[in-house]
Write a protein that binds this DNA or RNA. Sequence first.
DNA 1: CCGCTCATGTAACTGGTTACATGATTTA
DNA 2: TAAATCATGTAACCAGTTACATGAGCGG
Lengths: 179, 179
Amino acid sequence: MADLTDLELVVLGIIWKRGPCTSYAVCKEFVTSPSSYWSGSAGAIYPLVGRLVQRRLVRGAWGRTGRRRHRTYSLTETGEAALRAWLMPPIAPNAAMITYDPLRTRMYFLAMLRPADQRKFLDDAEARLIGERARVDAECRRYRDAGDAFSHLAMRGAAHVIRARLSWIRDVRRALSRA
Amino acid sequence: MADLTDLELVVLGIIWKRGPCTSYAVCKEFVTSPSSYWSGSAGAIYPLVGRLVQRRLVRGAWGRTGRRRHRTYSLTETGEAALRAWLMPPIAPNAAMITYDPLRTRMYFLAMLRPADQRKFLDDAEARLIGERARVDAECRRYRDAGDAFSHLAMRGAAHVIRARLSWIRDVRRALSRA
DNA sequence: CCGCTCATGTAACTGGTTACATGATTTA
DNA sequence: TAAATCATGTAACCAGTTACATGAGCGG
């Protein structure tokens, strides 16, 4: 029962956190999320939730508002157990491993640009990271004000990381200007 | 000509950096890389390099060592231009955006565990991040000693980020013990 | 009444993945 | 001589993507 993808587990988590909610609401959660790692498209979520139902991790109940039908999902005990098993230590070893960073990926090949363009690259990266930092900080405050402690703590992780990337870029600029 | 995936561009970059090399060498680069974002399996790389040849971004030359055949690839001018276009500012807006972090993903749902298990989770995460920090630092020194300045700078980015994640986890522990 | 949001879904595609198969060469 | 490495590839699969299609309800 452990062959669930990360997306499936996150959807499980969203349903648990929100309480009974529609697939549409799950989609929206991803779409409005500051991370774009998953698109949260209907094409991904609707069949996925269907699979969760078939595996009895989630149960669905049809409802209607006027003439409009909708289906709300909630976790079964099996679903809660699966979610807990995912979170429970020992955590997956790869969860703590080095993460993917498009800026770092590009950095490997930056020697290809002329020094002037390298500097422009760094300036651009810095400006965008500063913008991103503001966005993440705002999201942080939003969660704090909403009283969602763990989402707030999670988002603070993103804030830490964005600051680290920013200080790294400045580091790189200093290193290059010395050389 | 801009519809290249990140993996295709990174392969282009590896071929540029290594100079003429085989698909096998490109695979090994991914396999031995500290990041596991791409597996670097033959099933991904060999067809991909074939596509790069068809698009004239890369040219291939058959050779042999004794009775063993091999094919070495190198960038064409078009290939170099494509790589440069990828690196040249303005960089893709999503390159600076919030990155994916499996620990952060789990943090959203950590309220599901009993406080004791939450602490265990944080301890486990901390221990693994410390191990990862050592690995990344070693990799850093390797690049520095090899005289590969930009790979070294890139890896320092990973080092910054791993430290940020570590201090975030400690932050979370402090916040939870206060509450 | 027009457009937006809520709400459900399907279809075609694609960029990877794992696993397999083959054979030469090198090293323990 | 057995095992590891170099080197080439193919085949089946899969999770998630974009794009599309449909329709009810609501706000300006």
